[in-house]
Design a binder for these strands. Sequence first.
DNA 1: ATACTGACTGTGC
DNA 2: CGCACAGCCAGTA
Length: 124
Amino acid sequence: MADSGFFREVWDIVARVPAGKVVSYGQIAARLGSPRAARTVGWAMATAPRRLGLPCHRVVTSSGRLVPGWETQRDELEAEGVTFKSNGCVDMAKHQWDGKRVGKAGRGPANRLKAKAGAGMRGS
DNA sequence: ATACTGACTGTGC
DNA sequence: CGCACAGCCAGTA
């Protein structure tokens, strides 16, 4: 894989996400070795050719929020058995794809991940 | 080769 | 609790 690079891997991972599960952009990026490349991952989805049949509706943000401007996405996930919270967010704590690594569920605000403190230190 | 964009993320206030 | 700012990676123009 990786014949083309990052994108190919992103699509590959997304295509491997089982129904009823969701994965966050950051999780995919981290899987590729670049936890900060979440944007690139989202971009890969945005430019992902539909002919690939990518279940982009299974990709959500770290907050469990669905893609902004997407109305059918929630319906698609529900059809797969994904449950939602009252606020309209996916119950990622329950459906976030383990990514073949069980025990990693809840990597984000939901878990108060305080890794690397100098991550977004805006000190310009 | 350079610049810009893009469906994110984590902190800061 | 909500809004804003800055950093990151890769592909297209």
